[in-house]
Design a protein around this nucleic acid. Structure first.
Lengths: 141, 141
DNA sequence: GTGTTTGCAAAGTGTTTGCAATTTA
DNA sequence: TAAATTGCAAACACTTTGCAAACAC
């Protein structure tokens, strides 16, 4: 539509290319929202709203599809903390989370700030795929 | 309807009474399914099915309501591991979980088998309510 | 041009709710 | 009998899908 800042634009472009995803207008726009800052935790609904506010026209269905494509491509990670919504995290490295149950906000905990000693053996025939630590917090009473 | 084993029956009866819940036919039946064995992890759907198979007539809505009432009363705990279903755990003590992503089965990990060193401080104004460790496992390749 | 992607609206899932009928105490 | 509980069906929130139109290469 109009000129955009070029650096993040082309960063996202490259990211999409590397992932084998066609850099469509929608993917570029969502990619910029997601990747221009770091450690973002979004729900589909929230990202859709943010896009609308930014004057980007994308359907909610496309936001869902895009988030899943990004996840499959390894650009995002899903975080399960709340049974009623799915969060997507732009931090794809090993780390954990604070989850504020009262406002639904997630905050990263760097992997080196939590150490798990003595992890029990996985049940037979199974391999550990990932360990998630969720520190559920609430307003101090 | 017919005679039942008396021990578990009255255990559940007592549990409900202690929790201030009227021991209705449905609650007793679901309570027996849940508490007669230990460390059960059920979804509403699965418990409903189990009840039907056992010849107990309960509506799915009542199963949901009952699971929540039991949870509010401290007899059950909710476990969030999968964005698409809610699990209820009969183990209400501190512990963690293996979650088998391929079949959706949960297994308890006793609290003393995992030790978390150096938990970072909660963000200001917030208290830690609970720490959940989820070890996601998958069939060995 | 050809195959991919989008957007809509419709369908799907799991879950919750309103309310009359039933049950418990 | 009064108050709590149940069950149904309808409503819900979030998410996925089918398919024609639009777009990228």
């Amino acid at each position: 539509m109009e000129a955009v800042q070029n650096r993040p634009y082309s960063q996202t472009l490259q990211r999409l290319r590397d992932a084998g995803l066609r850099p469509t207008r929608q993917r570029l726009a969502l990619g910029r929202l997601l990747f221009d800052s770091s450690d973002r935790h979004v729900t589909a609904e929230a990202l859709h709203e943010e896009a609308q506010e930014g004057g980007i026209s994308v359907s909610l269905a496309t936001v869902y599809n895009t988030l899943h494509q990004f996840t499959d491509a390894g650009l995002l990670r899903q975080v399960v903390v709340d049974a009623s919504r799915t969060y997507f995290d732009t931090n794809i490295h090993e780390h954990h989370h604070f989850f504020n149950e009262s406002d639904g906000k997630l905050t990263d905990i760097p992997a080196d700030q939590i150490s798990l000693s003595t992890l029990p053996d996985a049940p037979e025939g199974l391999d550990v795929a990932r360990v998630d630590v969720i520190v559920r917090v609430a307003p101090a009473s």
